[in-house]
Simulated scan of single mutants.
Amino acid sequence: MTGRRAGMVVAAVWAAIACGAPARSQDVSTLKKDMIGQWELATTDRSKTCVVTLKNDSTAQGTLKLELEPGCAAALPFTKDITAWSIKGLGDIVRLQDAAGQPVVDFTEVETGIFEGMRTGEGIYILQNLAAARSLAKSMDQMIGDWAMVRGNGQSICGLTLTNNEANADNFQVFLKPKCDPAVTAFAPTQWRLDHGQIVLMSESGETWQFEADDNAQWRKVPDSADPLILLRQE
């Protein structure tokens, strides 16, 4: 959620074409067009958020105007220095900058519509399309709580709780309940995330199990098998 939050993977930076200027100009133009609108600026766990509206209007300095919602400075103090935005690099950097033109935070796209930026001594921040961010947050909220892991015949083999407790920058904590099937106990997931529509469970060793929603509003382990493993939300 991204996160993006929410499951973010580093994407390749847009390549420059050898004779350069026209291609770079097009890249800048394309990214600039794509960025116009409302965005959510947030910490990776979305515990602190701020809505930024990027505009197509130029400032006297040749940068672009933006608006920050009134609560931004309280939520993310560094935003009080942001006065404008621009596209930098080879058309691959979205810069939120101060009145002197210095970067407050630079963002690069890590996944379609999701940008990541780092502030030294503070950590990583996420810039995501506002509608997509709120949709992801709603989806994440629906995942939080108790689940049962069952076989295809309906036999429950383990109970687990998905939490919104941050395990690291990308993942959240998951806890198994007592008396789980040995196969689940051996896997021993400790983290989870929502990634490209999948619930991903992860162990300390890095092993992962992925579950996809099926037509019956259940989450089936993929790839599917003759003896499927299913996650069911518990009320």
Rank of each mutant, 00 (worst) to 15 (best):
T161Y: 00
A132G: 08
L136N: 13
A74V: 13
L130K: 05
Q142C: 09
T112L: 08
V94W: 03
P77C: 12
D170Q: 14
R134F: 08
G101P: 01
D141C: 07
F78Y: 14
R95Q: 04
L136F: 10
D98Q: 07
Q128N: 09
N153R: 11
F78L: 12
A131V: 05
M140W: 12
T79E: 08
L130V: 00
D106I: 01
A73V: 14
I126N: 01
D170N: 14
I124S: 14
V94C: 04
G113Q: 02
Q97W: 04
S139A: 15
V150L: 14
L136Y: 13
M149G: 12
T120V: 15
L130Y: 04
E116N: 04
L127P: 00
A84D: 02
A99D: 09
L162H: 02
G154D: 00
M118V: 15
F107E: 05
Q128G: 03
G123H: 08
F115N: 06
L76C: 07
G152T: 01
G145H: 07
N164P: 08
R119K: 06
T120M: 13
N164A: 15
R95I: 02
N164I: 09
V105A: 04
V105D: 03
P77T: 10
T83Q: 06
V110Y: 12
V105F: 01
C158P: 09
F107T: 03
G121A: 12
G159L: 01
A148V: 15
G113R: 00
V110R: 10
G145A: 05
G117I: 01
M149I: 13
I124Y: 11
G152I: 00
L136W: 11
G154P: 02
L127Q: 06
T108L: 09
Q97R: 13
W85C: 02
L76R: 05
C158Y: 10
F107M: 08
V150P: 08
